[in-house]
Design a protein around this nucleic acid. Structure first.
Length: 592
RNA sequence: GGGUGCGUAACUCAGCGGAUAGAGUAGCUGCCUUCUAAGCAGCGAGCCGCAGGUUCGAUCCCUGCCGCACCCGCCA
């Protein structure tokens, strides 16, 4: 909420200095959300941690701090008198008039009280990154969804974000594919769309198999890459045709998922690759080993415990992904001026990125003013706990996966409509089932801590109960239902009027509403969208408790001025849900 | 063999060095002459993998071990 925590922190700091001396200036007062609602909103654990240093019992320290805070007086504008509990916790409870005033403030604020940063940063988010000549499959799901959400959050926070699709459009696989196509389907190399993408994928698999087993083929393929990389016109035309075809296919998926991303494939960096090697050479980092040009940095060893090289130029003269990734870092920093680069790829690549970053640091492209991070995520597993595959053991195409989610959402919806004897248009059914299906897939992914593997289950993600997209969307739709029922235009509710918080459930709800800014800055820092999901889930639960006819409080049937006050709370909840979901890449529904 | 990540309720998962470790599902029990029950309230369910260590305090940090997953020289 509008800097509440910041204000409290300052007050604590001041009190610490006044009571215990200047050396405590800037010491973190260890303010955290209360561990249990009965303790209030926040707690400071500082007294416990200062006990040893100051040589006093923690409760005495807490008493001195509370005394000083009371004398200073500022805190009383926000909180009820601080309470000391247990071994020396200082518990803080925001008082109701402050909550009422804060709600009023965010109601009038288009960003719900979230401030813009004073120093917006240029940030590159590198995500999705499918490979040309392959279809997008389940392996691209997490990078695409998590990367998009991170980009949305950073954009909302006011940063200048470049969403970057580092597609695999270069390298050995193309030599392989072109060589193979020349044998089995030469027209594909000269005519647009001579074969459909499904076949292209099959050809790719066959080419890969040949490459792995046939040495002569492997050699020809490698030569083909070198030809392509050196600009041979026939190779380039073939390559462009393949890229164009894949690109259209990717775009279809991105349109479905409402993902905006700018393609800049590996090939873009081709002209810069020799220079990368040259700069490494100039820095004295290049070592020739078995014909390949390598860089050795401390801390990287292979399975025998020997130093592990980063190969930047292969013995055949070709460059590889390490070279490309280095060129990309260089370009992103030098030319694009990025101060933060975020790579959203699977956890299996951690080692590779650590290696690349270490070399970039060694050569001096990276320094402390630039933050380069790998944001790893775990595998998508089937319900058997193994890597998600079709029954026949093939990789699942992303398109099929999304189709199935939508189809299942549609079946659920139709069953529900029948049970409730509702009549809806075909268009409604189509829009709603599509929206729920896609939202469910996205939310299921985002709501897990990204670092662990997660088990993919259509049944769980489409469940109308629990921490799922449908539950959150329903909470939103319920609120819109209030506006329809009461003929109330939420956008025309009066601004700046006194909010009244009386009922326990509305206090609980509004306390939660006012925590959005803390959650968002945490998510920005940790790059963990599941924290936002958790927040929104709790918000939905708290709304449903507030709206419950037994234990909650009446809204439409309440007397003024409570009625308007509660309608404002409803609308603030809806706006918060809508904003939060939008940051996850999920649009809301008015009815469902 | 080395490296990285993970081991928390029957299942799927949260958990920020702090108080009695939390959700959701599943199971059981209540609440619809309705501000949409797709909801709400409640009950039971835990050696937080094991063993040490650091700390006033450890599910969280460190070390070792066990189990699982992924990575480990010219693919990306």
């Amino acid at each position: 909420m509008n800097s509440t925590l910041h204000t409290i922190r300052c007050q604590f700091n001041q009190a610490m200095v006044t009571q215990f001396g200047e050396h405590l200036a800037g010491t973190d007062p260890l303010l955290v959300p209360a561990s249990h609602p009965k303790f209030g909103d926040y707690q400071s654990n500082i007294a416990l941690s200062l006990a040893k240093q100051l040589g006093h019992p923690p409760r005495t320290i807490a008493q001195q701090l509370v005394h000083q805070l009371t004398v200073d007086g500022e805190l009383a504008k926000i909180c009820e008198p601080p309470a000391i509990a247990g071994p020396g916790f200082i518990n803080l409870r925001l008082h109701t008039p402050y909550l009422e005033q804060q709600l009023q403030a965010i109601q009038a604020h288009p960003r719900l009280g979230i401030p813009l940063p004073s120093h917006p940063q240029p940030i590159i988010v590198d995500f999705s990154s499918p490979n040309i000549a392959k279809e997008m499959h389940v392996g691209h799901l997490r990078s695409t969804i998590i990367g998009d959400s991170i980009a949305r959050i950073l954009e909302f926070q006011g940063h200048h974000v470049i969403r970057r699709n580092h597609v695999g459009d270069w390298g050995t696989q193309f030599g392989m594919l072109i060589t193979y196509l020349r044998e089995v389907c030469p027209q594909a190399l000269t005519t647009a769309d001579a074969i459909d993408l499904g076949n292209l994928v099959t050809f790719y698999q066959q080419a890969k198999q040949r490459f792995d087993t046939d040495e002569a083929f492997q050699h020809t393929a490698r030569t083909e890459v070198v030809k392509l990389q050196s600009g041979d016109p026939h190779s380039r035309i073939a390559w462009q045709l393949l890229c164009e075809q894949s690109r259209r296919e990717f775009q279809l998926i991105y349109d479905w998922l409402d993902i905006c991303i700018e393609e800049r494939g590996e090939s873009f960096y081709n002209p810069f690759l020799p220079n990368v090697v040259a700069e490494l050479e100039d820095a004295g980092l290049i070592v020739k080993d078995a014909g390949a040009l390598c860089v050795f940095v401390d801390g990287f060893t292979n399975k025998d415990g020997d130093p592990l090289p980063l190969i930047v130029q292969k013995s055949d003269g070709g460059f590889n992904y390490a070279t490309t990734d280095l060129a990309a870092i260089h370009y992103r920093i030098q030319t694009e001026g990025a101060t933060r680069i975020i790579y959203v790829t699977d956890a299996g690549q951690s080692h590779h990125f650590a290696h690349i970053f270490a070399v970039a640091r060694e050569v001096g492209w990276l320094n402390d003013s630039i933050q380069v991070v790998h944001v790893p995520f775990g595998l998508v597993q089937g319900e058997d706990g193994k890597k998600l595959k079709t029954r026949s053991g093939e990789t699942i195409r992303l398109k099929d996966l999304l189709d199935e989610a939508i189809a299942r959402a549609r079946t659920d919806l139709i069953t529900r409509l029948k049970a409730e004897e509702r009549e809806e248009t075909d268009e409604f059914i189509q829009v709603v089932s599509r929206s729920i299906g896609l939202a469910a897939v996205k939310y299921a992914d985002l709501s897990q801590n990204r670092t662990s593997n997660y088990i993919f289950s259509f049944d769980k993600m489409l469940d109308l109960r629990g921490n799922t997209a449908p539950y959150l969307l329903y909470a939103y739709a319920r609120i819109q239902g209030i506006s329809r029922k009461g003929n109330i235009d939420f956008t025309r509710l009066p601004n700046g009027i006194q909010i009244h918080l009386q009922h326990e459930s509305e206090l609980v709800l509004t306390r939660h509403l006012l925590q959005l800014d803390e959650i968002l800055s945490e998510v920005e820092r940790e790059l963990l969208p599941n924290r936002l999901c958790h927040y929104l889930f709790e918000l939905s639960q708290k709304f449903n408790q507030f709206y419950d006819k037994d234990r909650g409080c009446p809204v439409l049937t309440a007397e003024e001025p409570l009625r308007t006050s509660r309608l404002i709370i409803c609308n603030l909840t809806a706006r918060t849900l809508q904003l939060g979901l939008s940051l996850l890449g999920i649009p809301v529904l008015q009815r469902m």
